[in-house]
Amino acid sequence: MARALKRTYRTYVFRELNMTSLQAKNLVINYGDRVAVDGVSLTLQPGTVTAIIGPNGAGKSTLLRALNGYVRPATGSVQLDGQPIDQLNRRTIGRRIAVVAQEADLRFPITVLEFVLGGRYAWATNAAWGWETENDVKVAEAVIVETELAALSGRLMNELSGGERQRAVLARALATEAQFLLLDEPTANLDMSHQLSLLAVVRSRCNKRACAALVVTHDINLASEFADQVLLMRDGRMIRVGKPKDVLESAVLEDVFGVEVLVDAHPITGAPRVTPVHRVN
């Protein structure tokens, strides 16, 4: 109760003071003849984590990619602080919206610190001659500590394990100090403990700095534990949106995914727990 009150208060304060918002209105996105996203509207609230779930090809990643302007919608619009995103320059957007995709392409040797400093690009001014300022380095070193990479900051990226590399990708996104984090299957290649620690970093960021995170994931139970809001998609349409316990109902999930599922409450956390049922004929 106290937590919910605190969040409502914080949301209210940030809304009023900063007019911070990222909004999609009636997005329709086509890939050739195929409609990938079909009339989705969505608002990211400061301090909250939203998870998008749904079967493969439901348009989850496409929707996420449209929110920072990478994919252009056929109709509808994305607005950052009330301004259409296609009218803003990339640096402005880069300071406000960060994307965590799966592993980066690493054909050149580059250290973890150099990689994370890449997140400061959008803050560059001509005054610095294209070099990072002391503040840039300070921010990068802080997020390296936040993502538990301090011992590795001088190592080359391609010497790291998959989990460590994904943390570096997250660190680079956090180094942008963006208020909106878009995460595209950030935990897909990670083991259980790395999945938890990565999402815990995102969760605490959102709580401390009133960030809003949008996570595309196939892991419904992880979404249930970490998200304030779950958005269920199928065939480009938003089927349901709401609190995890309102969206994660067995009848809805069985319809969308086409498998029998058991939904119960997690005995320790109380969050809805989804288990597919496999019956042997």
């Binding site: 880069g94 960060a98 942008t176």
Partner: peptide, 22 residues
């Protein structure tokens, strides 16, 4: 003068776009 942008492009065009490179 374009080297900092190239540093990010070196790691992928989509990543560079996300981070603010035109």
């Amino acid at each position: 003068a374009n080297a900092r942008s190239l540093n990010l492009l070196m790691l992928g065009e989509r990543d560079a776009f996300d981070l603010g490179v035109e």
